[in-house]
Amino acid sequence: MLRTAARARRAAIVAAASLLLSGCTVVAPGGVGTPTVPVTRAAQDELLRSAEHRLVVDCLRGRGITLSARPRAPDDDRVFRAALFGAGPRELSVTLATGATVTAHEDGCLAIARQRLYGDQRRWFRAQVTVDNLRAEAQARMRTDPAHRAALARWTRCATPPLGPRPDRPAPAVAARCDRESGLDAVRKRLEAAEMAEVRTLHRDELATYRQLRDRALRRAAELPASGPPVERPHLS
């Protein structure tokens, strides 16, 4: 009974929110109150973050859950996680060039908020995970470069004490000195820049999708109506 009520409430909120969102896309060009997308990257990121947060809070409220700072008992936390992150099969999945298969659920409030903001959560997931890991991919490619291997061998010799085996983890000061003396720092900087350019070319399609969906989300975020009741900030130390 409770479940049915919650489901009905959720459906009503979803319907109301989509009406609100689709209604808001009809904005007269140049009209009074036309929403504007901020210019700086930092302000854009913050706008997307706030919009996603509000959509998540609305969705959770529809499931009878409040996003709060108080710690939860393990069972409550399990219910909360299922509502926020989703449950069941991991429908969203991307295998990166680095070998990692990144997955997420489609039915959690986080995924639902992204669906509303970005329009197509599967395309967004693929683009976002790929773009977020371009640096990791460039660095993985860099490690196979002979110049990097040679510099790393020099670094290892530098960090190995004259007597006895190399400590598992050299002191930070020793590591910093060896970074400089072996040339590893310089080699990394040079190779990483080249590999980043290479992986950006390899993933130009995902980058284009990323920009396209992000622009759409920025417009939607700017058009979101003023916030409802104040929301308690989640705890994350």
Binding site: L84, F85, G86, R90, T98, G99, A100, T101, V102, T103, A104, H105, G108, L110, A111, Q128, V129, D132, N133, R135, A136, Q139, A140, M142, R143, R169, P172, A175
Partner: peptide, 24 residues
Amino acid sequence: SAWQGGSMTICLAPGQEVGYNGAA
């Protein structure tokens, strides 16, 4: 590596999980 050194092996957004990674 320790103290955020060496290469970044993976970057995850909230809700993302990786069950296995042959390279990392």
